[in-house]
Amino acid sequence: MRAIEAENLKKRFGSVEALKGITFHVKRGEVFGYLGMNGAGKTTTVRILTGIVKPDSGCARVMGFDVSEDTLRAKEVIGVLPEVSNAYPDLTAWQNVMFTAELYGMSKREAEKRAEELLREFGIYDRRNSRVRGFSKGMKQRLMFCMALISDPEVIFLDEPTSGLDVLSARMIREKVLELAKSGKTIFLTSHNMNEVNLLCDRVAIINRGKIVVIDTPGNIRARVGGSVALEIRFDRAVELPAEFRSKKVGDKYVVYTTDVHEAFCSVADFARGAGVKVLEVNTRSPTLEDAFLSVLGVVN
């Protein structure tokens, strides 16, 4: 059974076409990454899938429930960590979690047991009786994660869960994602951090300006850059590499993607001699997901 199904979702805000027909499926137990730059449409997708925003057309199902028609049922099986959202600053951590549990219709006994477990796991149990007002950003986000998990949901939506967090909180959240994945939960994770989706996700969709460009495993997406090797070269001055190199400029370096290191290396050397530039540095490495990301977005010439 599929945990999430999105069929041709479209959404427009005034003159902005935020989603231009999004289709994808997420299997049960999968960690699905949703990668895109700011404004690509990630949050809009999450809001549609979590029943907060109605799509203009297309439909979406979560655990078989249509999010537009069976909204409450769909919401019952999901947990959401919105991108920009807060707990009530004047309530304590404990009260916030319990309030959320109430909204999910949980019994008090069950809620208390689960709240204690979660707050302990996320290292905020000792601060459970402090008001959220005084919490650091990382602590707030961990608390929001507790609130998202309180109902023990089957499908969990995390909208840029680690962006702007301290290293420790970010790591804690990533570890928790892996743990949840191990226990069979389905996770939909948006991010603009390649490293993060590479580490956590079974499959990744790359979205650009409201359209999905590619859906595949992180490994396959990496391989898409063409070559299996990236050649990093630094010259003594800025140059214009000919188009026959599959290359891009990163800072003061040029990255050339190739399957044949020898061939590429010799061509670069020929080019350097011909253009009268000096090679200062050469490195080889395997292409990263970031290379792939930029490549599928057409940044590589």
Binding site: T50, K75, I78, V84, S85, N86, A87, Y88, T100, G105
Partner: peptide
């Protein structure tokens, strides 16, 4: 303004 709204409407309440 406090951005608690999105959290609440994500819960199964209409």
């Amino acid at each position: 303004q406090m951005r608690t709204l999105e959290r609440i409407i994500s819960c199964p309440v209409d």
